[in-house]
Amino acid sequence: MADPVAQGGRGVSGVLEYLLDPATWTREDGLVDRLVEHVGISALALLVAAVVAIPVGLWLGHVGRGGFVALNIGGIGRAVPTYALLVLLVLMPAPFGANVPSFTVALALFTIPPLLTNTWTGVREADPAAVDAGRGLGMSGWQLLWRVELPMAMPLLLSGLRLAAVQVVATTTVVGLVGGGALGRVINTGFVSQDTRLVIAGAGLVALLALATEVGLGAVERRSGRRSRRGGDDAPEDPVPGRSAGEGAGTSAQGAAQAAR
């Protein structure tokens, strides 16, 4: 990390020079390595959170319990500072410490609230007429959940996943403050060595990555929405209320995203 600091200008032109130098990207612990670490840690945390939150949210929504927890967990998540939680885990004995398991657990804990809230809300808001019809057809609880409630919860579930993904990509940056890698390390190195080029490059890359996640998953969401609407013959979900519901959940999960970072 010493040589990029020593060479080149320090202003905006310095940032371009730094970013256009192939060695910046390809050398060991260069931007490519950091980017891969960032995406890897984020994806792992999102996966762990999804494996925990989605089944729990589906089940609680299906049996109609746990509403208080599902709806207020976001507030609890917001109140815990990510940085402090990361430090707590880093100081814990093995298997924790300044390592990937700690980072994954800390980030997953912040990703669970928006996922759980959206999944639960999605199942609860499934059209009661459709659920009744399913029950009338003799569907078991499991079939009802799998064939009726889950498809109807899909739009909210997907928007929850998108919010959680954007949040976790942004939050992974904090890992760089406790001795981990990822793009936060680039920012932190720039911060400590007062090299603005590294700070701007790192911050810009994280912001781009978060925006790309938002736009990319948004496209997936719209696509699956279109398909499910075409699939159902009397699909009741007209795009407008579906969207506004997602948006409403969005603003609350957005707050969660804030705290998480």
Binding site: V174, G176, A203, V206, A207, E214, R261
Partner: peptide
């Protein structure tokens, strides 16, 4: 929307100069 995608660490560091 743009502001909320900027990570806090990046925001603090970018405001520093």
């Amino acid at each position: 929307t743009v502001v909320y995608t900027i990570p806090s660490l990046a925001m603090f560091s970018l405001l520093l100069p």
